[in-house]
Design a binder for these strands. Structure first.
Lengths: 249, 249
DNA sequence: AAGTGGTCTAGACCACTAT
DNA sequence: TAGTGGTCTAGACCACTTA
């Protein structure tokens, strides 16, 4: 009774899609067919299909029909704790580009330095299947590797931050990552070929050496095609020592 | 010309919302008023408003009107590695609810058990400022704590999985979290009071005891209101042992 | 040429809110 | 009681794909 008809029609399609009876690529009945079959108006079948589209299960091809959506291959960012060399797997198909800029107030705060201090900013675009899927932008105080052969631009693309800075005598022992979904802003929108305002997955990451932040970065990733995969160890230190857990309240 | 009318009506509302001329909480013209003002049918103003709702700019209050959405304070989920008692800070304002169900194929796979084996499913809704912000659903093989006082329903809400299962003799030493942004589906949509299809932040988490998965859960969180905060240690275990400094400070 | 999805019009009923 | 949003019906035209 109370349940709106378009939800019932949507249910009738969602079930076979989710259990595989309607596999990806399969064509759904047309609006008119659905309307006849469920004895509803065409608007009702429209609403049902629109809902399934919004849920990401169905796509429409104008002039052709509604189809079960192919699940897009997703790009997985692997993150782990202490046993990992670099939390961020190097992006494939990258064009790395390093420049020197004075710290803006936001970066000065994230890196705990003075505004205007020189930073290396490194940016690269990750692609998968020809399409850009993520933009990674990293900022690092120039003072750390200035006049060494370990500046961001010197290292080859496969070298992680941890190795590079370790070689420069900076030991990274801690990382903080903030994950959020934010509206896409203009500069990244161009690189990702998306409309500004589209939701994107953002990871703000900061590497620390003791109390001191030594590198910070933003990963801006296309929502539909990216996943983060955290693999974390929870084993207590074998020796009976070990301080009590800090639950970060 | 070609631009559909409902997009033009939506534009006419989006501009004043984004530049603050229509502040959060402001009431928009009703469907009928919009239709008259723009000389379109009421369905067109309906479509325009539905688009703005999907964009997260507007909310509807049935019987009352359409309003510019209040931008909510965000809720932070703290995650850490081995020093944390529970990765997921207990949700505030929770209504915990535990039932016993046979494992569906998806859960059987995640938990590495046979389809149909009994599971405890625990669900709670996290709220902030009165509004639901996340749904956490956890699945755990009943065999682990069956006939003990450590089943999910027995523990008080503040006890984390790690402590509870440890008390039942199951030592969790590893966790894998998959973070993605997915379209919201119907069952969670009701709990979160959101439209199905809205993007939500999803964390699929699995706790392991050695190679064996012992608990898995889905956290479905409202995108605009939730952040994940990972604090991870990268320090190698020092050979000498001794009490380790807390790396999360 | 027929079918399809995208859009649009012009009505309607219901449950709910505001007054 | 009047207004509102949510849903629904029964039509229609257009651009596009398919055969």
């Amino acid at each position: 009774m109370g349940r709106p008809r378009y939800l019932r029609v949507a249910d009738a399609l969602r079930v076979p899609i989710l259990d595989g009876a309607l596999p990806p690529g399969a064509r759904l009945p047309s609006r008119a067919q659905l309307a006849r079959r469920h004895e509803v108006s065409e608007q009702v079948s429209r609403n049902a299909l629109r809902l399934l589209i919004a849920e990401g299960l169905v796509e429409s091809r104008p002039g052709s029909g509604y189809y079960v959506r192919e699940v897009p291959e997703s790009y997985r960012f692997a993150r782990t704790d202490r046993f990992s060399g670099s939390l961020l797997r190097p992006l494939a198909g990258e064009d790395r580009d390093t420049i020197t800029r004075p710290a803006c107030d936001r970066m000065a705060e994230r890196l705990g330095i003075g505004e205007g201090e020189p930073l290396y900013r490194t940016r690269c675009v990750g692609t998968a299947g020809g399409a850009p899927v993520a933009v990674h932008t990293s900022w690092e105080p120039a003072v750390l590797t200035h006049n060494t052969t370990r500046a961001p631009g010197d290292a080859d693309a496969e070298t992680g931050v941890l190795e590079r800075l370790a070689a420069a005598g900076v030991v990274i022992d801690r990382v903080v990552e903030e994950v959020a979904v934010l509206p896409l802003t203009e500069p990244e929108a161009v690189l990702l070929r998306l409309a500004p305002g589209a939701p994107v997955l953002v990871v703000e990451r900061t590497h620390y050496s003791g109390q001191r932040p030594v590198e910070t970065s933003d990963l801006v990733a296309v929502v539909e095609r990216c996943r983060l995969s955290y693999r974390l160890s929870l084993a207590r230190t074998p020796a009976g020592g070990g301080p009590r857990p800090d639950p970060h309240r």
